[in-house]
Design a protein around this nucleic acid. Structure first.
Lengths: 229, 229
DNA sequence: TCAAAAGTGTTAAAAGTACACCCATGA
DNA sequence: TCATGGGTGTACTTTTAACACTTTTGA
């Protein structure tokens, strides 16, 4: 096996990083740096893998190089490899600027993650002009097949979220039951019954009441809870 | 985009085809053709993709070329791309016989399927010396990282099987409730309560009673059912 | 008559679902 | 005093789980 860091011209990784801000579900996008035109093109952070790194390593490296974000658990969820996934002429222009072999047919391995937005402040570098959080309900057109990738990532997110009963780590250290409920409602995109939701969450004992309360709110202050370890 | 059929030296597909024979769960393996040695090496059917075909197409083509099997619904489940997934010296020997660039680092996209064994009689060709069904509980050592791929395919199979309540197509046209139960028990690898299982299956109405019965069995003959369309 | 799998119901516990009113706070 | 989200209980339905004996057939 070679130990150099040659670029593998046929395989890339793309990262769908979802961010939650107590209000909306967002996804991390980049605005591509396009030397020759003023038009704005958006995409997921992603790039070719190196020939001596694992896919997981590549995903973390690429995300960091483009957006500055690290320490995020990225989970592989699917390979996308239609021969014509780069069919738009504008995408080809972009590739010509940044790749040795822009015509090469590239298979991409897609990763996704879910984080608390306020903990991760993206900063653009490499071929990203900007990096920003975008409301998933208001996605612009994306380059390549990235719209499809985001939509399949969302499906996967919802599926895993229900199954694993996880997601508390997306909340502040102390949080109200209302905030958890909102988190679930936003990710699952449906309304839940307050009493039933509380019953269930408390029964599972993933969460523990503190004796603190909210302050400064325009309504009855809610009790604060924390993760139960 | 190129329209030729150049081989993509960096991406392959591997197929985990599970076969059910009313008794056991099996997986389709090949014995590799090794010109220089008499040693026997086993592997999943798999090969490099062509540069102008989709991943799904590649999976179906490769399976057919190696084993003769076609008309099987193959579902992508994961990419495997550790840089050292080809670490065994014997695997390298095999690659030297069949690949232009045997040292190339290859990422593989793994597919799985579940079929009724008696409907698919594999016939070896290409670099397969033999193709055969192997009991999943008695797997030999496999080449590359194929043992890992099979074990993750099994997990995925069980997960999807429960969720989708499918699998009746693995039974003969007319079947008994006992046969369905056995199918579930073999795939899920656990014992189920007969009365509860029947109640559930019948409630779902995926299955319809006929007025035929088994004949020639050494016990009370069971009523035959068929798929309810 | 024996062995083997078919066939059959009840009960209890747990989980899910629908639903409406009062409370504490800051403006 | 008002608007806002917090907080609470009950009744009903559905789902799951545990459990044992009789029946029919061919050998």
């Amino acid at each position: 096996m070679s130990l150099n860091t040659a670029i593998n011209p046929n395989v890339s990784v793309d990262c769908v990083v979802f961010g939650f801000d107590n209000e909306k579900l967002n996804v991390l996008l980049i605005q591509q740096k396009l030397p020759s035109t003023k038009e704005q093109r958006y995409a997921l952070p992603g790039d070719l893998i190196l020939d001596n790194e694992s896919l997981d390593t590549a995903a973390n490296r690429v995300l960091k190089e483009i957006s500055g974000l690290s320490g995020i658990f990225l989970k592989q969820f699917r390979a996308f490899g239609d021969p014509d996934r780069v069919s738009n002429i504008k995408d080809l222009e972009f590739l010509k600027s940044y790749r040795k072999n822009p015509q090469a047919r590239v298979i991409t391995i897609a990763y996704f993650a879910l984080v608390r937005m306020e903990n991760f402040k993206p900063e653009a570098s490499s071929f990203a002009e900007k990096v920003f959080w975008q409301d998933v309900t208001e996605l612009p057109d994306l380059s390549f097949d990235h719209t499809k990738i985001v939509s399949q990532a969302l499906e996967k997110l919802r599926h895993d979220f229900i199954r694993d009963k996880t997601g508390f780590e997306l909340l502040p250290e102390r949080f109200t039951l209302g905030q958890i409920q909102k988190l679930y409602e936003i990710i699952l995109n449906e309304n839940l019954d307050k009493r039933n939701f509380r019953k269930k969450i408390l029964k599972e004992e993933l969460v523990k009441a503190t004796n603190q309360k909210q302050t400064g709110v325009l309504h009855k202050p809610a009790r604060l809870y924390k993760i139960n370890n």
